[in-house]
Nucleic acid binder design. Structure first.
Lengths: 198, 198
DNA sequence: ACCTGAACACCGTTCAAGT
DNA sequence: ACCTGAACACCGTTCAAGT
């Protein structure tokens, strides 16, 4: 079930070499200049023509899928694994922390991932489909054990975490913000359940 | 202290007319197509040449300042006013709700505003300076009355709210997400203060 | 002084010619 | 089949010529 991160279709030897060079170059360029770096830079870094880049990855999103593949697969597996963890709430927050850390290697990736989670149809959205389902299960189990705010649902929660502010230097999420979200999830057993409207 | 939303410098009659047409056009275009709409559209909508647009607003950020001016002034005044409100926590959450609603008329404005809050030097950052100070006061007062998580600070909190996910249709923030943040702010008096690390 | 719109530059995307 | 790189298109920015 866990495929290596290579091209999906059988490819001529040189084409496969280019495909892999492009994914590697994409990781390098996006890590260095963020996910909005000039697409041409990726081709140059990989040492191929622009046409070759577009042949393999018709849109930026397609390249991002190849780059995120492994990590998303990992998160999906982890979510299913944590369904058996003794403490459902702990399992949920552990997974959310992993999720948060997953997109922070590339500047701007997190925000982009957040969008893809809420909109359907894009290649990244398709990639994340199984992971979203697995996470929803983990979320529901936690909700059953620890009462969570009734109005919050799994996907907006992930989008919310994706949009948390980052340290300019490291690109990592500001820890306290993530903590605020986590501690805001349970419906307050002490009566403080998020001030009323008006 | 409250100036009308006109050009900062004395201007020739036609120049002033153009300035105001550009701000109006900017609001219309950004409301319709989001704050990343082609800059040229703004000039066309205002019925002026591109050079005129760039003369008045050397960067997109400068135009956004003119557009946000009134609203930011309002938020600043409101923050100072709420310092006298009887319930400091209520005052804080009321202001945060207003803040959240302020950038949702223009697609993408909220995210952009969030960035400007954390980075210094940009025109929008300068615009927001006084408001940030006024809000910090409101925040500190609330913290004194209701113990808040000790690690969360005013500016990241604003950045966090700016980055909350939006309904694709209306552009408004998903209510439940804002509620999660608000209810996550107080440091849990019941011992649940956001799970520990590791 | 200020305005206009053509010119320039940059980058995303396509495609004719090559292997 | 796949690759290359020049060509095209789009849009942000500048600037020479006009009022």
């Amino acid at each position: 079930m866990k495929l290596p991160a290579t091209a999906p279709k059988p490819l001529r030897r040189d084409a496969r070499r280019n495909y892999e060079a492009l994914v590697t170059a994409g990781k390098a360029v996006f890590a260095g200049s963020g996910v909005d770096a000039p697409f041409e830079d990726v081709a140059r870094e990989a040492g191929v023509g622009q046409g070759t880049l577009y042949r393999h990855f018709p849109t930026r999103d397609h390249l991002l899928v190849a780059i995120l593949q492994e990590r998303v697969d990992f998160l999906d597996a982890k979510a299913r694994e944590l369904l058996d963890a003794p403490d459902a709430w702990e399992a949920l927050s552990e997974w959310l922390r992993l999720f948060d850390q997953s997109a922070t290697e590339y500047g701007g990736m997190s925000a982009r991932l957040g969008n893809s989670l809420t909109v359907d149809g894009s290649p990244v959205a398709t990639l994340c489909g199984p992971m979203k389902t697995s996470f929803a299960n983990l979320f529901e189990r936690a909700k059953h054990e620890t009462p969570l705010r009734p109005d919050i649902t799994p996907i907006p929660l992930l989008a919310m975490i994706s949009g948390l502010p980052k340290e300019p230097q490291t690109g990592k999420t500001l820890e306290p913000c993530l903590e605020v979200v986590l501690s805001g999830l349970p419906s307050g057993p002490d009566g403080r359940e998020g001030s009323t409207r008006t």
